[in-house]
Amino acid sequence: MKIIVCMKQVPVQDSLLKITDDNTWVHEDELNWEINESDNYAMEAALRLKEEHGGEVVLLSMGPDRVKESIKQGLAKGVERALHINNEDFTTRDPFINAKLLAAAIKQESPDLVLTGLQADDTGFGQTGPILAEYLGLPHTSIVMEIEKSNGGIKVKRELEGGWFQSVELPLPALLSIQSGSNQLRYATIKGIMMAKKKEIKSLTLADLGLAEDEVDDSNSSLNFNRIFIPEKTKKAEIFEGDPKEIAAKLADKLKNEAKVF
């Protein structure tokens, strides 16, 4: 089975974020980066499938040079090789353009299965998977918790709201968006880290992908990412601090007499 996993590198969760002066993004220089959480679970799912059914897992990632660090983590965990679309010169935040780039790279590989994480912890669009499915013409489903091979292709268990689940069967090739928490993540061992040194990270340029610069230009999209800002807090909580006994008495009083909840 040839499985491609799309991996995005995002700022470490709970990083201190500072918005740029033109309100278009956050300052990236001082940030630390990590593999997007649900992408990590997608990678884990891919590795388990490979271990069970044989084949190879290929990591696909798009980003500037710093992405290589996260790619190496993937290689250390057991991914066979990686593809890196280096976008130092043309950063885009449009999920459709990003998907176009990824699709171009994936088409060249003809995988049996494409796995993406459910959504990125930074932009949180959660759209890459379904859009990729459309561009690649693949059947897809999302919020996947378990995957197993079946006669008709693959059978997956996916999560619905309210604690319900659904089983869905898809023919291969297919695309799946993987939910966080679906598996126990493995740790990169020293052995894996040493072996990763010899694994290939192939750099892909726009030319390699057969795309022109204006095709990946954000300003041509129909959705405009205008500005970002720290939200004003409309609600102002009444905060209590200090001696627990005093707080408790005040709070109990407020709840009874002001909020009247008991």
Binding site: K233, K235, A237, E238, I239, F240, E241, G242, P244, K245, I247, A248, A249, L251, A252, D253, K254, L255, K256, A259, F262
Partner: peptide, 27 residues
């Protein structure tokens, strides 16, 4: 705290027992 009406910044292991006592008394 951004969506709370009332917020307590403190150690829950101290606040909760105190709250239990306070609520018992006031009810």
């Amino acid at each position: 705290f951004d969506i709370a009406d009332y917020g307590v910044v403190g150690d829950l292991f101290e606040v909760v027992p105190a709250l239990i006592a306070a609520v018992k008394e006031i009810r």
